[in-house]
Amino acid sequence: MTFLLFAEQMLNGLQFGIMLFLMAAGLTLVFGVMGLINLAHGSLYMIGAFAAAAVAGATGSFVLALIASLAAAAAAGALIELTVIRRLYKRDHLDQVLATFALILILSEGTRWVFGSFPLYLDVPSYLSGPVTLPGGIQYPLYRLAIIVAGLVVAGGLFALIARTRIGIQIRAGEADREMIAALGIDISRLYTLVFALGAALAGLAGALVGAIQSVQVGMGEPVLILAFVVIVIGGIGSIKGALVGALLVGMTDTMGGVLLPRFFALFLDPSAATTVGASLGSMLIYILMAVVLIMRPSGLYGSA
């Protein structure tokens, strides 16, 4: 394996990890602040992608499409929070899992009803298409590089929001002690809606950004949702730092495992068997990683409980 290919796969892993972080951040915030496990987070990712594809199709502008994905996912998130989710905060996890599973059924079939079963396509804008040459002679698609940068900027913004702003203080206080911040005069239900909408907007943005690489279709959120759960479980549920570390770990493991394992097995198996064994083991690798992390640290890398 050449250095160039290796570097390219590292970048792919990084890009995947950053996108997973955008998904996982909302999940882990919602769990940390409200104690809610939200399976419908993948639907918000899907809504963001569909909104972006629809707006890009109508206006031709990629920037407007990204704005639409943020707005549509945030609005859908706020609506879901106000109508359904806020009734679930005091329920046990089983009720939360079921109610949000029901939301997935409603949102997925609803989207299929509106947009049909055929995938939509979201084109990479011309100013971001084509390869770019990085130091060391690595050829890499400009768009993927752009989403790495965009994801890092958003992640930085999120950390700044949580560490430096008044809203961030309220969010952290909400994680520590709900009753206390309500007693201090903060409108807790407004804070909850805000946090939920923020998480939804991040998921919607991730959906739109990834939608330009893959196709936009119903059910696209589910594999990502499950990976995002793996991420927050590895990182420790409720921890943003854990989500970042977990996302990068999962992104790298999944990408590099898929590339390296078949080559590893090729050392002592015949080529077709090596490809088969390597590919199936590669797709199981992150779940094995998660099981190992949970066995070593039952509440994740940065979990508190």
């Binding site: 359904v84 109610a99 029901a102 939301l103 997935i104 059924l105 409603i106 079939e109 009803w113």
Partner: peptide, 11 residues
């Protein structure tokens, strides 16, 4: 799209 109704019922 019957799963919409299933979802609503489950909810």
């Amino acid at each position: 799209y019957w799963k919409i109704f299933l979802g609503a019922l489950l909810l």
